[in-house]
Design a protein around this nucleic acid. Structure first.
Lengths: 129, 129
DNA sequence: ATTTAAATGTTATAATATAACACTATGTAA
DNA sequence: TTACATAGTGTTATATTATAACATTTAAAT
């Protein structure tokens, strides 16, 4: 198991507490009182946290959320649902989906070591509005 | 069917001819001799081309490729394979995959109108190196 | 012909991300 | 416990990606 460094812990905590994905400069703004002053300090921690699977990047939003899947040590198979109205993002944890995708082979026989899937739609709340 | 405007056509052509995904500022550099001078002119064309499905954005790379699926008018179900060594990107056109994903419902019953999937691995060439 | 929507041109600026370099802390193995 | 390697930090500067705002032009649809 990984012990987080000081900056990594600070930045993980703020992402973990956030109800929505956080952007790098919003994180920066929020941790300046803790002595983290420069973008690079944030990006370095983000890179590491992504690498070890504690957080994931929502690519379509350039934003980061804490991993919701406690058993997920390394980030190599991720799926998210994104509401295009309220921007709520949820990590999808569905074994049928992950099995299907992990075993997927394309026609060229290429086997994949990693994937990221982002679904878009309207969440329940936004559908009934 | 859509008729592309002058800028849209110029920018689509250069992406379509490219063997690899193109980044916005690389596109800009390449079309400056055609009179397109500003980033915004490029981004506006890109937005429209994505909207009508002529090109797709590779989110993890901030780059754009022409749609390889001639029947695809609107961009709402996309899947790509990305080689992490040579950065070759291929659009995946697999009806089993697209059926599976188009019908996927999460536990909350949310039905999705759109998805984007990016697989990462090593292409055949890079595997044998 | 007139109106409306879409596209263009332009300047400025916002937002996202990395390069380079000097230094510090931590873990590991002799 | 010292030395060595690896990972993390701090800092300044800069690169890359993307949008705001506004004036004008073109195309399409009555």
């Amino acid at each position: 198991m990984h012990t987080l460094s000081k900056n990594q812990q600070i930045i993980f905590d703020i992402i973990d507490k956030s109800p929505e994905p956080m952007k790098a400069y919003s994180i920066l703004f929020n941790v300046q009182k803790k002595g983290i002053k420069a973008p690079l300090q944030v990006y370095r921690a983000l890179d590491k946290l992504v690498e070890i699977g504690k957080i994931h990047k929502i690519e379509s939003r350039n934003a980061f959320i804490a991993c919701q899947n406690s058993s997920c040590q390394v980030s190599k198979a991720t799926a998210f649902s994104i509401c295009e109205s309220c921007e709520k993002v949820t990590e999808i944890n569905n074994s049928s989906l992950s099995k299907y995708l992990s075993n997927f082979k394309d026609k060229a026989g290429m086997k994949y070591s990693k994937y990221n899937l982002e679904f878009f739609g309207l969440c329940k709340k936004c559908t009934t509005k």
